[in-house]
């Protein structure tokens, strides 16, 4: 009994140490990526290629999701607001929830499952098929050639995707609220403009999406680079990327929100 308990506690201790040391390795990896970023900026077409795979290929899911999230916000918001006779504030509700929270967070979650998992799978597969080792044997640093361009491509794409998500969401809210239900268009836009501050809301939302982009990309790259070079290892790493980065997004969102919107 006592023995089993001690065993469990030992297990917790070991897992904690493992996690912490893994985070340390990931942090070192992050630093390494930043240090080796020079060549990819000198050869910018490498980054452009990765903006395509991370950003352009995520466009459809981001745009469609943004539109629907905005439309749902419009419907639900109207239902609630009309009880108080404040349906003119629909624009405020839709835009503030999108710009402050849903835009950066949902876009980052979608990005993690669309682009993040693809990055992990691709790098894991490159490792499993010895492409990374082959690159090293050709005297080409894989961090500089493979990892850094993907990092910058994804980090550049993320805020653009989040902005597109929010913009589509506002349009969705407008479609449902103004075009479909018939809220006054002038009130919808003017109240929105009066309530949404460029620095407080929009800029903070952009900062959030940049932070999420860095977190998701580093997790995806690290999991891929660290994956055991087998089919099972790669598939597990892909799952772990989605789970870990989703948790990281939500956790970071809380911390950032606490700092940004405290007392306002």
């Amino acid at each position: 009994m006592m023995q089993a308990l001690i065993g469990h506690i030992r297990g917790i201790g070991r897992r904690t140490v493992d996690r912490v040391s893994r985070m340390g390795v990931a942090a070192r990896f992050f630093l390494l990526v930043l240090l080796h970023s020079g060549p990819s900026f000198r050869r910018f077409h490498l980054i452009i290629r990765e903006i395509f795979t991370a950003g352009v290929l995520s466009l459809i899911i981001i745009l469609v999701s943004g539109l629907f999230v905005g439309m749902v916000l419009g419907l639900q918001g109207y239902e609630t607001l009309q009880t108080y006779g404040a349906e003119e504030s629909l624009g405020v509700l839709v835009s503030l929830s999108l710009v402050r929270e849903l835009g950066p967070v949902v876009a980052a979650l979608l990005f993690a499952s669309r682009a993040g998992s693809a990055i992990t799978a691709e790098i894991g597969l490159m490792k499993a098929t010895e492409q990374i080792a082959a690159m090293e044997m050709m005297a080409v640093d894989p961090i500089a050639r493979v990892v850094a361009p993907r990092f910058w491509g994804a980090v550049i794409s993320m805020p653009l995707l989040a902005a597109l998500f929010s913009a589509m969401g506002v349009l969705g809210g407008y479609l449902v609220g103004v075009v479909l239900i018939g809220v006054d268009a002038g009130a919808f836009w003017s109240q929105m403009q009066a309530a949404v501050d460029f620095k407080e809301d929009i800029l903070n939302g952009v900062i959030k999406s940049v932070v999420f982009g860095i977190a998701v990309t580093i997790i995806a790259l690290f999991e891929g680079y660290d994956a055991p070079p087998t089919a099972e290892g790669v598939s597990r790493a892909t799952t772990r990327t989605v789970v870990t980065s989703s948790l990281a997004i939500l956790g970071l969102d809380f911390v950032l929100t606490a700092f940004m919107f405290r007392g306002v």
Binding site: M126, E130, A134, M137, M138
Partner: peptide, 20 residues
């Protein structure tokens, strides 16, 4: 080492071609 490797080639078991 990287200097030396420029004068070395290696053929991996299944080729290890860059798939992209």
């Amino acid at each position: 080492l990287y200097q030396l490797r420029r004068r070395m080639g290696m053929l991996f078991q299944f080729g290890a071609l860059f798939t992209d």
